[in-house]
Design a binder for these strands. Structure first.
Lengths: 188, 188
DNA sequence: GTCTATAGGTAGATAGAC
DNA sequence: GTCTATCTACCTATAGAC
């Protein structure tokens, strides 16, 4: 699908696939998947709509790619953060901080996973949901290790924490509390 | 805009304005404001797209009406629930239970407020946001009355609780925990 | 790798009949 | 109140030039 070498008469733009993903994430986030056109996304990276189809075979493919990348990024960041902490409490806090950092970073990938995944209708959605569920499970172990209640209780706590985090973009102000402060505030 | 009497040759449908609001709420919820057409909404109530414009002068007007009604409903329900409880703790719990009942009821109005309000671009959005902020404030008083921390702490708790509630439609299963159980679970 | 041109479909909205 | 018919605009996607 992608060629290794640019032809001589092509303009010297570095890999537009990534630029397109960034633009799509931004656009899908601000007005939903259905609310922004291929023309909008293309114009953000300085090309025409038809050219997107060199990298992505359809609009839905573009959405799936954004979501796949979004899950990959946040999973990677949070896993790393957890690995560097020693106690269950620190692991939970580290996971929350890096999760919030990614969600509130303004790159919009995570939000497209969060907000658009439940309503896309596509066979590949199943795999994405599995990947997101797997991501959500990262949080359950540190909570269980806190040993503060039954298994049901642990899941309730996880729903509480993850819901609050997933919702935070709605009220977050970049001149207010930092992700660290928000995470610590949630944990008392 | 609306007439009081139906003409004789009109079909005997009772006020379609409400039916249209219900259908719009459902559709805007499932595929976003941009993802569903006036034709889709019209067909849900058994009329043609052009006929919607007898009740609503534009698609955006229809969205605004859904959101206005959504805020009105949940404000009314939660205010009433709070008024029937006696202690701060009971008031907070009553507010959470009725908030969750409305959000998880399946009528979709609340979710259109929650999910679509941040991204519509319209002068009237300001008023809706004010109304929703006023609604959010309903929760702050019971939390403050609990006297468990500083004002900042109270707002952190509110963000935690409201975020978790607003997010609950994503994982709620109608054969699982009830809104009461979820609210009590969040409150420990 | 990006362009232009365009096919083929659907969108929101309006006008006028009934 | 709802219909049909229609306008204009925009959409996704493709084909072929460069």
């Amino acid at each position: 699908m992608m060629q290794k070498k640019a032809t001589l008469n092509a303009q010297p733009r570095s890999d537009n696939r990534l630029n397109l993903l960034d633009a799509a994430a931004r656009r899908f986030c601000s007005r939903s998947y259905y609310g922004k056109s291929m023309r909008d996304i293309a114009s953000d990276v300085g090309i025409k709509a038809g050219s997107i189809y060199y990298c992505f075979e359809s609009k839905k493919e573009l959405l799936i790619a954004v979501q796949k990348e979004g899950i990959r990024r946040i999973t990677s960041l949070v896993s790393t953060a957890i690995a560097t902490a020693n106690t269950p409490w620190d692991r939970l806090q580290a996971a929350m901080i890096s999760n919030l950092q990614e969600i509130l970073s303004g790159n919009d990938y995570a939000q497209v996973v969060i907000r658009e995944l439940p309503r896309i209708d596509d066979p590949r959605r199943r795999r994405l949901i599995d990947a997101r569920n797997k991501y959500d499970l990262i949080f359950i172990k540190p909570i269980k290790d806190l040993e503060i209640g039954s298994e049901i209780k642990c899941y309730q706590i996880r729903f509480l924490i993850m819901g609050a985090m997933n919702w935070s973009p709605m009220w977050f102000k970049s001149d207010g509390q930092s992700p660290e402060e928000i995470a610590k505030g949630f944990l008392n």
